[in-house]
Amino acid sequence: MNRINPAKLLLSKWTATAPKNKEKHFLVTELFRDEENTVLEIELQAVMTRRTQRLAWQTLQDADHWTMGWK
């Protein structure tokens, strides 16, 4: 399990452990917060294709799917 501080996720780099469509490296490009400034979701952008996806930040804690940094 990856230990993550959600407030420091912006512009962090991630590697997918099982890449699809040649999308292996990702960058967190946006944080979505609630009224209390708590991070709820993030926007991940694939470096190669520039495709974006929005997902809960807790998804990045799953070490079976994501690794911190670009490897």
Rank of each mutant, 00 (worst) to 15 (best):
R51Q: 13
N37W: 09
T38Y: 09
K13S: 08
A46H: 04
H25K: 13
T15C: 06
K22L: 12
K20D: 10
V39R: 05
K22Y: 13
L40Y: 00
K24V: 08
Q45D: 01
A63I: 10
W57C: 05
Q61L: 06
M1Q: 11
Q53H: 04
E30R: 14
R51D: 09
S12M: 07
H25F: 15
E41R: 12
H65I: 05
P19K: 10
T52L: 02
I42G: 03
T59H: 06
K8P: 00
V47P: 00
T17G: 07
R51E: 12
T49C: 02
K20H: 10
H65D: 08
E36W: 11
R3A: 09
R54W: 02
D62C: 03
E41G: 01
E43D: 02
R3P: 01
D34F: 07
G69I: 08
L9G: 10
W66D: 04
D34L: 08
E35F: 11
L9A: 12
W66I: 06
W57D: 04
T52F: 01
T67E: 14
E36R: 13
A7W: 08
F26P: 02
E23K: 10
N37G: 03
E30M: 09
K13M: 05
T49F: 04
S12Q: 14
K24S: 11
R33L: 14
K24N: 07
L31M: 05
D62G: 01
A7L: 14
Q45T: 10
K13D: 04
P19E: 07
L55I: 09
A16M: 14
T29N: 08
A56V: 12
D62N: 15
Q53P: 00
A46N: 04
L11T: 06
V47L: 13
E43G: 00
K24H: 07
A63K: 12
A63F: 03
L11E: 13
T67M: 12
A7V: 11
Q45E: 15
S12V: 06
L44Q: 03
I42H: 05
M1F: 11
L10Q: 05
W14K: 06
W14L: 06
A63M: 00
W66A: 03
T59R: 13
L40T: 11
T17I: 13
P6H: 01
W14A: 04
Q58E: 14
K20A: 10
Q61W: 00
K71P: 15
N2W: 08
T59Y: 04
L60E: 04
D62W: 00
K22G: 14
L44Y: 00
